[in-house]
Amino acid sequence: MAIIDFKFALEQVPAVLKGVPWTLTIAIIAMIVGLLFGLLIALVRIYKVPLLNQLSILYISFIRGTPLIVQLYVFFYGVPVLFDYLNPRFGWELNADNISPLIYALIAYSINTAAYQAEIFRGAINATSAGQMEAAYSVGMTTAQGLYRIILPQAFLIALPNLGNLFINLIKATSLAFAVKVMEILAISRIIANDGYRFLEMYLVASIIYWALCLACEIIFAKLEGKMSRFEGRADLKASAS
């Protein structure tokens, strides 16, 4: 048996590539949903909205303190339990079996990533200088206007490198989607590998596909940063001035 059967590996690439759309769908949609909720949670925490702030702290601590795979299982097995609890009380007929694996994955990954994004945005908003909001007030803006027009655009730029890392982590994390029965890159590779006893080949194929995806994301985020940071100018050098 050759070390690596390249021919076999190459032949399987198209089959494994079928997992890429699943990976990207989960990562992109979870990222966008997480962005909205993350931002809201960050604001809740910054403005210390009573009750919601404490709930947010608890939620973020739980998400960061438990493995994603456990969260996926809790969610996957928790939804039917929840439905069993709700159905008799409200006369509903919700059936967990009717929910597609993709929906499970989208919701679970969104819940997970929102917690991390909340922390990123909280840090980024706090990193904008206090004077910016004061200046917004001084020209007669409301808090909402100041946030939307002045603070958030600046915070988003500060957050961008971390958001990029988070997105790459999200892509890698989709390899756990098998827990909610989504057939993405790794799940497909695993089945082919088990069938043909070609483990090394299949997992190398999977690695290279993930690797390529991540490098592509890195490039895209670097471009995005370059484009958005036009107003930074010499700001780095003069950061101490404000």
Binding site: T174, L186, Y203, S207, W211
Partner: peptide, 12 residues
């Protein structure tokens, strides 16, 4: 290491 999932590394 940073661009591939840990699970893939574990399997490899």
């Amino acid at each position: 290491t940073r661009c591939t999932p840990l699970l893939v590394q574990l399997f490899l």
